[in-house]
Design a binder for these strands. Structure first.
Lengths: 343, 343
DNA sequence: CTTATCTCTTTACTCGCGTAAAAAATAAAT
DNA sequence: ATTTATTTTTTACGCGAGTAAAGAGATAAG
C-alpha cells in the first residue's frame, strides 16, 4: 500500500496534481484508451499517490445513460435464482457494467416498485427474471419502453429486447423418456396455479412425450400459493398419499423444490424413494437446484445451463446497449439429464 | 392509472406546473412535513398528473451523505444469508433508506472491491456480514473509518459501530444439553479451517458444555476450503466412515449445511439417521437453514433469531446515522432448539 | 384592524463533471 | 525542416438539484 497523501476534492484538483488538464483526465476516466499511452501512465501513477475517484453522482447527472445495470430476480432466497444471479452479476462486471441486484421476494407489487426505482437510476439496461404469471404485464411493458431490458428464465411473450431461458418442454420430454426407459411411466406433479409459465411448458412437454410414447398421461395437481415450494410439495404429497397415492410409482415433479418437499413427505410416510430394490417410488425433479445433489436420495433432475443462459443474456443486453438493433428474439437452451438415485 | 400528461424535465418545470417555486418543491421532497398542508396537497396532486421524480444523481451530488445503505453478505447463494439479507433489506426500506445488496461470493478480494465501490456511493451507512476469518481486516477497518458500519452474523472484534449476531456458544451448549439428555453424548464435526469465527465459538460451546457435564469431548475435523459446505460435509463424513466411523453415534455439526452433507453421506453409506429404532446415528446442525425442515430426516437444529438480528442491526445503524454516539457494542441473540427427527 | 409569525418566492451561488470549440502543443511522416 | 495528423489545453457553458438570504404574502393571534 502506498500512502495516499492529501485528499483530492475533485477532478480539477486531481488534474492539477497529475499535471494535466481536467478535460483530458475526464476523457481518461471515460475511456483510458482514448488518451496517449504516456498520458495514461501519468494519470495512473497519480492515482497511486492520491486517493481520488470521480464522483459517481456528478458523472451520471448529465449522461443520458449510465453504466448501471439492474438485475431483477423473483426470489433471491431460492438458491436457483441466487446462483443464476451470481453468474449474471459476474458477467455484467466483466462487460464493464455496474450491476445492482434486486429481488421481488415473490411479490408482484414489489417487482413493480423495483422497476420504478430502477428508472430513476437511469440504467443502461436491465436483466430481469419476471415473477411470471403474477407479474403485472402492463407495468413491465411500460418499463421496457424506457429501458433496454432482456428477460430471462421466465418469459412474458414479446416483452423487452429478448428472452433467454431454457427449453422447458424439452426438459420434461427428456426426463419422461428416461423414466419410461428405466421403469414405470411417470405421473406429473405440479401446483394447481403455477407461479410461472415455465411450469406450463413443462406440463406440455410431459403430455407431448407421453403421447408420443402412446402412454396415458396422468397429471397430479396440488394446492398452494406463493414461493414456499418445498412446503407445498410436502403438504401436497401428503394429501395425495392420504387420498390413495400417486397414479404411478414414478413421480416427475415440475421443479426440484417441489420434489424436495415430496421427498420429505415420503420420508415422513416411511416410503422408500429411489431406484434400488427396497424403494417403492421414484421421484424426479427439474432445474438441478444447488441442493439436489444432497437430498436423500440425491435427486435425479434436469440441469439448466446456468452459464449459457447468463452469458447469452448479458451479451444480448450488451450488444443492444451498444446500439445493435434486432427484432425480439427468443433463445432457449437445452437441459441435461442428471441421473442420481431418486429415479 | 391517471394518464400522466407531458413529460417533466426537472424540478423547475414541475414547480411551475404545480404553481409553486422550485425551492418550495425542493423542500417538500426533502421532507414533506416541512411545507404547509395545503402546499403539500398541491404538490401531491401534481404528482398524480405529471410523471416526475427528482434526479437522484443531482440530489446526491452535493449532499455529504445520501439515503443509500449497503448490505454486504459473504455468500448470497447460501439461503441462510439470502434470508437474512431479505429481512435486513426490508427493514432498511421501512427505515427510509435505499438499500443495495452485495455478495462477496466467498471471495475476500471481492469483498474489498465491494467496499471500495461502496465508498463512491457515499452511503449513509453499511450493514455488513464479513466473510470472517478470511476477511481482510485492515481494509475493512479503513472502510469503517469512512462509513458508519454495523457488522452482523460474523464478528471482527471492535470493528465498526457495533456487532449484532447470535450467541454461538450458547447454540452449541443448548444442543449438547439436549443431545445428552436424549441419547449418547455427541461428537462435534467441523471444518479444519472454518471460514468464520462463529465456528470457533460453536466448538467452544461444545467443549464447555461437555466439560460441565463431565464428559469427554470429541472433536472431528474435516478438510475442505471454500463455501461448498454440503460437499465438504459429505466428503468429510465419507472419510470418517471409511476410517472407522464417528467416535459417537451422535454427531453435532458446526452448521446445517455441513449437516446436510453428512446426511447425504449417511444415505450413500446406507446408514439410517434419526431417533427411531432403526436408526443408528443421530445428526444435528445449527442455524435452521431454510431447507433444514425438508431434509430426510428433517434436521434437528438451533434456530437463529433472524428477525431480532436484522431488526436490531438496522436500528443500531439508523440511530448512528441520526447522530447518536455510542461506544462499540456487541449484541448477541439466543438461539432456539428446533427438534425434528434427525436427532 | 394591527401585529407577529409562518410560509413561500426571488434571486443567486454552489457542486463535480460532461462536453463542445478553438487554439496550442506534440508526434509522426515526408 | 516542413507538413500533417493527433493529442492536449483553454475557455466556457450546461446539467438538476441543494441551499442561503431577503423580501413578499398569507395566517393566526391580539
Amino acid at each position: 500500500m502506498t500512502r495516499k497523501t492529501p485528499k483530492i476534492r475533485n477532478m480539477e484538483e486531481f488534474a492539477s496534481v497529475s499535471g494535466l488538464s481536467r478535460p483530458t483526465v475526464s476523457k481518461y476516466f471515460n475511456d483510458p484508451e482514448s488518451v496517449r499511452a504516456s498520458t495514461r501512465a501519468r494519470i495512473e501513477q497519480a492515482l497511486e499517490h492520491y486517493d481520488y475517484r470521480p464522483n459517481i453522482y456528478a458523472i451520471n447527472q448529465n449522461r443520458k445513460l449510465t453504466k448501471n445495470v439492474g438485475i431483477v430476480v423473483p426470489y433471491l432466497a431460492d438458491p436457483f435464482f441466487a446462483e443464476i444471479a451470481r453468474n449474471v452479476e459476474q458477467r455484467c462486471i466483466d462487460a464493464g457494467f455496474r450491476p445492482t441486484l434486486y429481488s421481488a421476494h415473490g411479490d408482484p407489487a414489489l417487482e413493480v416498485e423495483i422497476l420504478d426505482s430502477l428508472r430513476s437510476l437511469k440504467p443502461a439496461g436491465v436483466l430481469m427474471a419476471p415473477l411470471g404469471r403474477s407479474s403485472i404485464r402492463a407495468e413491465i411493458e411500460k418499463f421496457c419502453g424506457h429501458v433496454p431490458t432482456v428477460l430471462f428464465d421466465s418469459n412474458i411473450p414479446d416483452l423487452g429486447l429478448a428472452f433467454v431461458g431454457s427449453n422447458n418442454t424439452q426438459f420434461s420430454m427428456l426426463m419422461v423418456e428416461y423414466l419410461c426407459r428405466t421403469g414405470e411411466p411417470p405421473c406429473f406433479l405440479e401446483m394447481r396455479t403455477p407461479s410461472n409459465p415455465n411450469a406450463n411448458k413443462r406440463r406440455q412437454g410431459y403430455l407431448d412425450a407421453m403421447a408420443r410414447l402412446g402412454l396415458e398421461p396422468k397429471v397430479v395437481r396440488i394446492d398452494g400459493e406463493g414461493w414456499a415450494f418445498e412446503e407445498i410439495g410436502r403438504a401436497g404429497a401428503h394429501g395425495v398419499f392420504d387420498a390413495g397415492g400417486f397414479p404411478s410409482t414414478t413421480v416427475l415433479c415440475s421443479n426440484d423444490r417441489l420434489a424436495i418437499g415430496v421427498l420429505t413427505a415420503c420420508w415422513e410416510k416411511g416410503i422408500r424413494v429411489g431406484i434400488d430394490g427396497e424403494a417403492t417410488i421414484r421421484v424426479a425433479g427439474q432445474d438441478d437446484h444447488p441442493l439436489a445433489r444432497y437430498t436423500c436420495p440425491p435427486l435425479t433432475t434436469i440441469a439448466q445451463d446456468y452459464e449459457a443462459i447468463s452469458s447469452h443474456a448479458v451479451n444480448t443486453l450488451a450488444r443492444a446497449v451498444e446500439g445493435e438493433k434486432k427484432p425480439h428474439e427468443t433463445t432457449l437452451f437445452e437441459g441435461k439429464l442428471v441421473m442420481r438415485y431418486s429415479a
